[in-house]
Amino acid sequence: MATFRFREPSIIPGFRLTFGFTIFYLMVIVIIPIAGLFLKTFELDWQAFYPIISGPRFLAALKLSFGASLLAAMFNAVIGVLVAWVLVRYEFPGRRALDAMVDLPFALPTAVAGISLASIYSPNGWIGSLFAPFGIKIAYTPLGIWIALVFIGLPFVVRSVQPVLQDFSKEIEEASATLGASRPQTISRVMLPALLPAILTGFSLAFARAVGEYGSVIFIAGNLPRQTEILPLLIVFRLEEFNYAAAAAIAAVMLVASFIILLAINLIQVWSQRRFGNG
């Protein structure tokens, strides 16, 4: 273990300046707003706080928000790797255009995304009308929420996996094959362990974004209490009642829950790095 030295001699100096800026920036942008959120929450005593976070409506929304976000992030983890694989490994006409298109969900205003998705997946929309004859409703159901979350989360996985895949040399696959591994073995024992940290990073980013997503979901969700009502909407209700403390309380619970899940993902990441070596 090297002892920590405050000013490491470096080719590019400026630790103090950059560190100071980093701390200042994080204070202003992240720490102060979040501290404010928790301070607002502490305006409530337990008697006021507990009913807010224990009602059946809150619990249903909590389950829906986190459940749909996890499922969407998992789906994106699989499809995102596939997309990244295709973009990295194959040459085909229009590859660059396709590559650029992956970022569109980042660029599109979320309300626009939500309204478009709702029109496409509603019973008389392009895709919704294909499913309507079988009695499958997509828009205004939890399924619709999941689709919106998949839409906004996809770029995170693709963009985290892509560079790792690019650096992953084909020779390793060939070596694995010459040493007698079957194709599934090469994928599961050689490629996936190397990609896992990147996949997990993409997964957590997609998940975190999905939990807080409001704009795109609200138009396709249906917003029925205990059925298709997401947690951020409950926060908006409290704001409409000018009950800022209750809104902050819900947000704080979301934040803590997200933090626990992201921490768990981080631990898996550390574990996998130890187990399989650096990805």
């Binding site: 019973p123 138009f219 917003n223």
Partner: peptide, 19 residues
């Protein structure tokens, strides 16, 4: 079946999305 958050959203749900 759908509780939109605003009047325009509802108009959209009814007129454009046929719900």
């Amino acid at each position: 079946p759908v509780l939109d958050s605003g009047a325009r959203g509802s108009t959209n749900t009814f007129v454009k999305n046929g719900t």
